[in-house]
Design a protein around this nucleic acid. Structure first.
Lengths: 348, 348
DNA sequence: GATCCTAAGGAATAGGTTTTCCCGGCTACG
DNA sequence: CGTAGCCGGGAAAACCTATTCCTTAGGATC
C-alpha cells in the first residue's frame, strides 16, 4: 500500500522487475489470464501491492479502443433538474466501471461545441445530454463517433434515444387524486405557455376533468412564470374570478408556495378551504411548506438511471431508439386531505 | 468536417498518409513545431480538417505524463453547496483545458475509496474535494501521487490547501448592516450547534453586538435545525421570550423563510416590526420570499474558482498550503430597509 | 531412445502521439 | 571548387498495457 512518494506511479514494468518476471507474465498474473504457477501469481500480486501499483487506464484504453468514460452535457447549469438526472446516470454507469466527464455549457453554443470537441478528443464511449426543457433541441453534431442518449430533453431527430418525464401522466394522477378527495372546482396555475411541459400538464388535467364531467375550460389555465411571485398574484386572480375554487393544481412547487402565501393573505385556509398540489417534489420547497405539499414527482433520478442504462446498452452494441417515458409518482402530503363526509368521486 | 461515419476515428497516421508526409512531420505541422515549409503545413492541416482528425488525448497523456483531467469528489450528493463550487472550479480548470471527473460519494466511505482508486488508475493530475460541512475531515489517502485541494471543507492535516467561506465575516457584515439600519434588539436563529458554521456565524454576530454595546448573550442563540419548520417554531419562542425584538439574523435562508412565516402568524410585520437577514443567498428561497430576503452570500462559485486555480498552480509545481478564506458578501433586499427617522448606529 | 505433449513463462506487437536525433540537399562563403 | 551551415523532413524511441505467438524444459508414451 505504500507508494514511492513523490516519484511517478509504479508501472507494470516495475512490478515485473520486483517479482522477477517478464512484463507479459506480470500482466497475466494480475488479470488472471494465461497459465501460470500459483506461486508466480502470488509473487506478482504481492509485488504489485507493495509498490501500490494501479494499472494505467489510459494505456488500457489506447489498446482496447474503449476508454470507459462518457460525457455528460447539460444546458441547465447543473441546476435542480439536471443534478438528480446526473446522479441517476452516474449510478447506472458506475456499475459499468465508467467515469463521467462533467460539462456545463451554460446555454452557450460555443461552449457546447468546445466541450464536444474535447470529448471527441478524449474518445469517450458515449454521451448523455440533459436539459431543463423537454422541447426538442438540435441534435449534436458528432457524426457516428459514439452513441448519444438524451435525458429530460430530446433531439429534433426524433429517432435519437431520449428519456422523458411523463408530464401529462403526472398531471392525470394529480387530477384524479383531487377528484378522489372530493374536490370539484379545480384551478390550474402554471408556468409560461411556451413551455411544452406546462402545456402537457394542463392537457393532463383537462382530460381528467372533462372526462369526469367536471367543467374545465382550457382558457381557464393561468399561464405565467415559474416563480413564487406569480403564484401569489395568480391566487388572487383565480379566487376573484372563481370564488368557489376548492383546489388548485400548480405547475411547480415554487408556484404552489406562492399560491399558498397568496391564499393565506386572502384569508383562505389550506387545505381546509382549498387543496393544493404542486409539481416537481423539490424537497426543500415541498416539505418546508406549511402544510407540506402534495406534489408530483417525475422521478428525475430514475430518468437518469434509465439514460445511463440505455447508453450502456448502446455502447455494448445494442442501441434502443426513440423516446421513452418514465411514469411519474404522486407524493401525498398534508395539502390534500380527504374531505370527510363527502362521497368520493368515481375513479374515471 | 465530415468523418468516415461508422469507422473508427482518424489517426494522425491517416492524416500523414493523406498529406503524403511522415507521421512525425504531420505531428509537427499540427502542433506548430519544428521547421516545415508553409505549404507542407497547410497540406497537413487541410488533410486533418478533411478527415475530421482530433488528436487522441489518451495517447498524448500517456506520453506526456499528464492527462489534463482532475477528479472532483463531493460528499454532498451534489447538492446546493457543492454545485456552485463545482461550477466555479470547472470554470477555472476549463481555462487550463482540463476536464473534470465527477464523483459523488453519497457519504459512503466505500464509494469514496472506489472512486479514489479509479481516479488513481486514470492518472488524474489532481483532485478537488468538496463537502457540505466545513469541519475538518480525514485526509484522503493518496500518498503523494497528485495534489489535492479542499473546498468548502478541510482536511485534518491542517497543512493541506483548503478554501473556506468566511462564515464569521459574513455574520459580522450582516450584524453591522442591522445596526446601521437602526435595529437594536437582534435575535439569532440558526442550525444545530454541532455545526462549526453555525457557531462561527453566532460568534461573528456576538462580537459585533457586544462591541457596539448592544447586549447579546451567547445563550440567547437559538440553535435548532436547518429547516423552515424550525424557523417557524423558533420565531414564536423568540418573540415570547423577547417581545422587543426588532431584527432576526437567521443561519440560513430556509430558516429565514420559516421565521417570516412564523412572524406573520404572530401578527408581526416584516420588515416593519422585525427585520430579517438570511444566510446562503439561495436564489429561489431568498428572492421568492415576500419580502425578498437580505442575505449573506458566501460566494460559493468564487470558492470553487479559487480551488481550481490553486489546483492548477499545484499541478504546475507551485503549491500553496494552508487555509484560504473567501470574503462573504451581503446582498441587501427588502427585508432590511433603513428605519426612517432613527439615527444610524456608528459603524463600530 | 525418439517423439509428442503440456506447463510455464518470455518476446514481440499493437495502440496514437510527441520529440529527439539524424540525413540529404541546397546555398553561401572563402 | 570545397566546405560549413541551414532547411526540410524522415526514422525511431518513448509512454504503458494486453495479448498472441514462441520457446524451453520436463515428463510421458511407444
Amino acid at each position: 500500500m505504500p507508494d514511492s512518494a513523490g516519484t511517478r506511479p509504479a508501472t507494470i514494468r516495475d512490478v515485473a522487475a520486483a517479482a522477477g518476471v517478464s512484463i507479459g507474465t506480470a500482466s497475466k498474473a494480475l488479470n488472471g489470464q494465461g497459465r501460470l504457477r500459483a506461486e508466480t501469481r502470488h509473487r506478482v500480486t504481492e509485488a504489485a501491492e507493495r509498490l501500490g501499483f494501479a494499472p494505467n487506464v489510459l494505456a488500457q484504453g489506447l489498446l482496447g479502443g474503449r476508454t470507459y468514460t462518457v460525457g455528460m452535457i447539460t444546458t441547465d447549469s447543473f441546476g435542480r433538474f439536471s443534478i438528480p438526472v446526473m446522479l441517476g446516470a452516474e449510478d447506472a454507469l458506475g456499475a459499468g466501471q465508467i467515469s463521467v466527464f462533467m460539462c456545463d455549457t451554460r446555454d452557450d453554443p460555443d461552449r457546447e461545441q468546445r466541450y464536444l470537441d474535447r470529448l471527441i478528443s478524449r474518445r469517450v464511449d458515449g454521451l448523455i445530454v440533459t436539459g431543463r426543457r423537454i422541447e426538442p433541441r438540435p441534435a449534436l453534431d458528432i457524426g457516428r463517433r459514439f452513441p448519444v442518449v438524451y435525458a429530460m430533453t430530446q433531439s429534433l431527430d426524433g429517432d435519437d434515444p431520449a428519456i422523458l418525464p411523463d408530464d401529462e401522466g403526472g398531471a392525470v394522477t394529480a387530477a384524479r387524486h383531487l377528484l378522489e378527495t372530493g374536490r370539484r372546482h379545480i384551478g390550474h396555475i402554471t408556468g409560461p405557455e411556451r413551455f411544452l411541459a406546462a402545456r402537457k400538464r394542463a392537457a393532463g388535467l383537462s382530460h381528467v376533468l372533462t372526462g369526469a364531467g367536471v367543467p374545465f375550460a382550457a382558457d381557464e389555465v393561468l399561464y405565467g412564470e415559474w416563480s413564487e411571485r406569480w403564484g401569489r398574484d395568480a391566487a388572487r386572480i383565480l379566487l376573484t374570478s372563481a370564488p368557489a375554487t376548492d383546489a388548485i393544481f400548480c405547475g411547480s412547487d415554487q408556484i404552489a408556495r406562492g399560491v399558498a402565501d397568496g391564499l393565506r393573505t386572502l384569508g383562505c385556509h389550506v387545505p381546509g378551504d382549498v387543496a393544493l398540489v404542486g409539481f416537481d417534489n423539490w424537497a426543500p420547497m415541498a416539505t418546508g411548506a406549511d402544510p407540506p405539499l402534495t406534489t408530483v414527482d417525475v422521478r428525475l433520478e430514475e430518468i437518469g438511471r434509465l439514460a445511463g442504462q440505455h447508453l450502456l446498452a448502446a455502447i455494448g452494441g445494442d442501441p434502443e431508439r426513440g423516446v421513452h417515458t418514465v411514469p411519474a409518482e404522486l407524493v401525498i402530503r398534508d395539502s390534500t386531505p380527504a374531505l370527510i363526509g363527502d362521497d368520493p368521486a368515481p375513479a374515471t
